[in-house]
Every structure is written in structure tokens, then in C-alpha cells.
């Protein structure tokens, strides 16, 4: 068939509401567009009009199918940008590790939370771990802990070398939950003392899921 005839046939089928047997062009196109062109019902199996229409519509719809298959990648850094903005929006809590006349060295509480999470994930039996610092508790502790020896460079909200960390973990089915939780506590405490220099570390472990 010539291109001109083919184009004319396409225009024809798109100009009418039904094909010769009475079936709706829109419903046939829906069948094609939803990927069911080959799934003929009992009428279509014996109807040359429907079969011709489905074939023609399938061909017409093919550019859209090709388009839909095109992979789309998220722009690099999209999630990082999102999280940076979220962290900026969230009220941050800081641990001050060193105070001197020339300033303070501070580590964001969320960094401590992340270290705790990553460490918890190294414990055998832990399938997933999420770490956070207990902001509300920290604020209360800050006031008590810094009341008597507040340094001029230390802003309110700073808690010296004390950390309270909450970790939620999902434990593999069949593991001794208490043993896994205790191991998480010990490893996290050791990691935060060694890597960050925190002295007083409280680690609360919540086992909130068991996964197979």
C-alpha cells in the first residue's frame, strides 16, 4: 500500500466513531493503548473489521509506545539537593566537641545519627536500621548540662560531648532479638566514642520489625 493510501486509511479510521461491525473505535484504541491488541474477544476473533482496525490502530499508536519506553534518569544530585534543603529547613542540633578561644568544632546531630545507623547495619541479624538523634531530649539535656559551665562560644542547643541516639532496627526472623539489640548498642557506642569523640553516649534501640 502506498504511503498516501496508508495515511488516508488512518485518517478514515480516526474520523469515524465505529468500524463496520459497530465496535467503537475509541474502545479499540483503548485496547491497543493499554497493550491488549493481541487479546481478542470472541467477536474480534471472527471479525475482520475489528482485526484490521486493531492492526491499524496498533501501528498508529506505536510512536507513543516507543516514547514511553525511553528511559529517563533523575538528574544527578536531585536527592542530595532535596535533603540539603530539608536539613536546612529542619532545626539542627549540634554537638560541640572542642571549645577554645579561637572557636568551636561542631558536628551536626544528623551526622551522629547517620554514623549510628551505618554501624547498626553492620550487626549480624539487622536487616534495616534507621538512626536519629532525640532532639527533644537533647534540648532538655542541653539546658541542664550547660547551665553551670556554658562557654562563651557555645550557643544554646549545644550539648558538649553527650549524645542520645535512637535507632530503629528491623531484625531478621529467627535471630535472638535481645542479643542483636545489645550488639547494636555496644557497636554504636564504641563507634561514636572512637570516631566522633563523644564521651557519654546513650543508645536506645527499638526493634520495630521482623523480616524474613
Amino acid at each position: 500500500m502506498s504511503e498516501a493510501k496508508s495515511a488516508e486509511r488512518s485518517r478514515d479510521i480516526l474520523r469515524v466513531l465505529t468500524v463496520a461491525c459497530g465496535r467503537s473505535v475509541d474502545q479499540l484504541l483503548e485496547q491497543v493503548a493499554d497493550g491488549h491488541a493481541d487479546e481478542l474477544d470472541s467477536h474480534q476473533a471472527d471479525c475482520v473489521h475489528c482485526q484490521a482496525a486493531l492492526s491499524e490502530l496498533n501501528s498508529l499508536w506505536s510512536p507513543v509506545v516507543e516514547f514511553a519506553k525511553q528511559p529517563v534518569q533523575a538528574p544527578p544530585g536531585l536527592v542530595d539537593n532535596v535533603m540539603d534543603r530539608i536539613y536546612a529547613l529542619a532545626q539542627d542540633v549540634w554537638y560541640t566537641l572542642q571549645l577554645s578561644d579561637i572557636g568551636a568544632v561542631k558536628i551536626a546531630a544528623r551526622v551522629v545519627g547517620r554514623l549510628a545507623r551505618d554501624t547498626a547495619r553492620t550487626v549480624p541479624g539487622v536487616r534495616a536500621a534507621l538512626g536519629r538523634t532525640s532532639q527533644g531530649r537533647i534540648v532538655q539535656l542541653v539546658e541542664a548540662a550547660t547551665r553551670r559551665h556554658r562557654h562563651p562560644h557555645a550557643a544554646v542547643g549545644v550539648l558538649g560531648r553527650t549524645a542520645v541516639v535512637d535507632i530503629a532496627v528491623a531484625v531478621r526472623y529467627g535471630e535472638d532479638v535481645h542479643e542483636v539489640a545489645a550488639e547494636v548498642q555496644q557497636r554504636v557506642i564504641a563507634r561514636l566514642r572512637h570516631d566522633v569523640g563523644l564521651q557519654l553516649v546513650n543508645v536506645n534501640v527499638t526493634v520495630d520489625d521482623v523480616v524474613i
Binding site: V72, A74, V79, V82, M83, I86, R114, R117, R132, A168
Partner: peptide, 23 residues
């Protein structure tokens, strides 16, 4: 977990849906 304040839970959700949101 994200509703309870776990940032990394939200980061996982954001990563999971980044392509679909962008696309």
C-alpha cells in the same frame, strides 16, 4: 519512620521516587 523524624527514612523515600517525580 520519616514522620517520627528519621531523616534517612525520608531520604530513602526521596531516592525511591526521584525518577518518577522528575519523569
Amino acid at each position: 519512620r520519616a514522620q517520627e523524624g528519621y531523616f534517612d527514612a525520608y531520604q530513602e523515600l526521596a531516592s525511591r521516587y526521584a525518577v518518577r517525580m522528575y519523569r
